[in-house]
Design a protein around this nucleic acid. Structure first.
Lengths: 168, 168
DNA sequence: TTGAACTTTCAAAATATTTTGAAAGTTTTT
DNA sequence: AAAAACTTTCAAAATATTTTGAAAGTTCAA
């Protein structure tokens, strides 16, 4: 497998993964392309490389910026914009989780809170089951938040430890 | 908000959440319906409740069984099947993660492993960047696996602790 | 062996999502 | 002020996904 093939495979694999997780295939592909690009790329280059239209390239780059995964770069004396992806995958993962929590989980939590407070007959099995499910979901979200916090702290501590070693 | 409204809202919220995470809206809705149903339900009841066709109900129930989230229940003297969802949301979450890892992450890891081993010019910036990205992704997956393990152990310890208290 | 009571399948139809490309918008240079 | 060099928008077209429903399949009782 030469570089071109490997690159194509990486991009298409990332696209499939994104698409199975509810992210537009093309957005994931643009992200993949930028992740493995040593230099910032222009809209033109992204279009060319992925064979997509200008509108499509533009929208997806914009979305990636909104997701905090890609940054706009301007160069002195040039009018066109360059795009560079955050390369630290751990940062990328944290950012994706943060955004998805904000966009997709938090609105659900708001609804769940409302549902928990609906006045229902305490003898109504159906309603008891619903309130029970809602509370359980909330507690699992808390567990997940906690686990994520722990993972982040663990990582930070590992970093501090590594730095400390360097100077001891 | 009465029970019917709360139920409808729960189902539609769960459907939207599923759909934004790459799970078919209807499968998520069927799951939601069963999650809050104190009794096991028949295909007929699911069709009725969600206003979906027999084919659709059948396929989604089947998929939920494949995902390990719903169980088939047979009753003596009855020919039709009943479906009951796993109600322990923490178990549900673990099961979903396990399945998604198997179905969607593992195939990607296999590809990444291939990509890492492609012989590329070590002086080729492009190829170096690709291999770098691939290695980084692999290491983040490892971190995530580890974090999940830790979260599961933490939960198990909490359980043991609670039991212990009961008997001390 | 037939028929009743179910479940499963899948091609066609319906629906939802994504993509295109050209027009409109913006900013800078001449 | 006009033109050049870009970016953005969005309605229509293309594509992908989901849903339907009727036919086929299965299982069991009579």
């Amino acid at each position: 497998m030469n570089h071109q093939e490997a690159k194509a495979k990486f991009i298409q694999t990332w696209g499939t993964l994104g698409s199975s997780w509810g992210i537009s295939r093309t957005m994931a592909q643009v992200h993949a392309l930028l992740l493995i690009s040593p230099e910032a790329m222009t809209t033109e280059e992204v279009m060319e490389d992925l064979k997509i239209s200008r509108g499509n390239a533009n929208m997806n780059l914009r979305d990636l910026i909104d997701w905090g995964l890609v940054f706009r770069e301007l160069r002195a004396g040039e009018r066109k914009e360059y795009f560079r992806a955050e390369k630290d995958i751990w940062k990328v993962a944290k950012q994706i989780i943060k955004e998805r929590r904000k966009r997709e989980i938090e609105p659900v939590l708001k609804v769940l809170e409302e549902l928990k407070n609906t006045k229902g007959d305490k003898n109504d099995k159906q309603h008891k089951a619903l309130v029970e499910a809602v509370s359980n979901i909330e507690s699992v979200v808390e567990k997940a938040d906690f686990a994520l916090e722990r993972a982040i702290k663990l990582d930070e501590n590992a970093l501090v430890g590594a730095l400390f070693k360097l100077f001891k």
